[in-house]
Design a protein around this nucleic acid. Structure first.
Length: 340
DNA sequence: AACATTATCAACCGCAGCCTC
DNA sequence: GGAGGCTGCGGTTGATAATGT
């Protein structure tokens, strides 16, 4: 598992590529005797045909005696995830909390394992929030699996037919959560308000939604609250049959955080708690941690309106899912939505 | 068995920031 | 203050291993 061309020499005649055991021995021997001192001067003093940078990297990432080898423990895994949520890609800062682990090792572990793991759980590895991009729908089976669905079934002695219904419910709920986030983005985006709704070309596709007045969006929001309320009944398999009635006494205020409205215990299959997708809400949370670590150019941010709209465009172009969304939209508010 | 694809991770590159003069 | 050198950091690369077809 080596990187770069083996034995490749650069223009200065210095060796690049993987280190030989002999080079390792020379480097260890020198540092044990003299310390590393100036890295730039070290290779010459130690008799190595390497640049100082390469020596430093080899020492700090591989040869240092206090380096812990082997698999990351579950505890370390959780620590990395938590620290990454707070610090972002500050690998050296994260590594400082994990004795014996190097930033490079943690970075690799993140990119090869943890990132995928979070994605499969429906969590965006950049923001550590539930994904609002619609690619998540393609990964719904993995999402459900990651939600430890089988455990839920066996732990609760749920019969197979009920389990299947539960799975269908969970999939339904995941989509509901997704649509919720999209709508929240629409309703809190200053751009959207200024333009009286979607500017993205995707929105001018099959669904004639432009020119949507703000009060209609508010109505959609409140309808959505109702829909969510109907989905969050303790008996999951029953919610398909719940009538959509006004449960919030015509209060059309959209919840700032749906997580607060969803008792964790009733969330099916331990889906990630629904968090606000609006940029405002997100910024507020970021300020609580470390605002400076968020790259404003980060296009992978699932809460960004452009990304969400692009994803929406993908969705409305998808013939297979069109009927599903049409059903939800019409169910939610047949009198206020018009789909042409 | 042969080939293709995916995963892993050591090592490199470029840049930012610190330090010294 | 700013130029130059050095170090550390984060992103990326690419050879090899593992797995799939």
């Amino acid at each position: 598992m080596m990187g770069r061309l083996p034995g490749n020499d650069d223009e200065n005649g210095l060796k690049k590529g993987p280190w030989t055991p002999e080079e390792d021995r020379v480097l260890i021997d020198y540092i044990q005797r003299h310390g590393h001192g100036s890295w730039r001067a070290l290779p010459k003093l130690a008799g190595l045909n390497r640049c100082g940078k390469s020596c430093r990297l080899r020492w700090t990432n591989y040869l240092r005696p206090d380096i812990k080898r082997g698999r990351f423990s579950e505890e370390e895994e959780h620590t990395i995830i938590n620290l990454h949520a707070a610090l972002g890609n500050k690998w050296s800062a994260i590594a400082s909390h994990l004795p014996g682990r190097t930033d490079n090792e943690i970075k690799n572990f993140w990119n090869t394992h943890l990132k995928k793991k979070l994605l499969q759980m429906g969590i965006d590895p950049v923001t550590h929030r539930p994904r609002t991009d619609l690619n998540i729908l393609a990964n719904l089976p993995q999402l459900l699996a990651a939600a430890n669905f089988s455990n839920l079934i066996t732990m609760n002695n749920i019969p197979l037919d009920s389990a299947l219904m539960l799975q269908s419910d969970a999939a339904h709920l995941a989509k509901i959560q997704l649509l919720h986030n999209i709508i929240q983005v629409l309703c809190t985006s200053p751009t959207m308000e200024a333009m009286n709704f979607p500017a993205g070309p995707s929105f001018r596709g099959n669904y004639q939604l432009q020119g949507f007045a703000p009060h209609k969006l508010n109505q959609l929001q409140s309808n959505f609250v109702n829909l969510e309320a109907s989905q969050h009944q303790p008996e999951l398999s029953e919610y398909h049959h719940q009538p959509l009635k006004d449960t919030n006494n015509n209060n059309h205020q959209f919840p700032s955080s749906s997580a607060a409205n969803i008792p964790t215990s009733t969330q099916p299959a331990q889906l990630p708690a629904l968090l606000p997708a609006s940029t405002e809400c997100r910024t507020g949370t970021v300020n609580q941690t470390e605002n400076k670590n968020i790259n404003p150019n980060d296009i992978s941010n699932p809460s960004s309106t452009s990304t969400t709209f692009e994803a929406w465009g993908d969705l409305v172009d998808d013939e297979a899912s069109e009927s599903y969304w049409r059903e939800i939209i019409e169910q939610t508010s047949p009198q206020t939505w018009s789909i042409s």
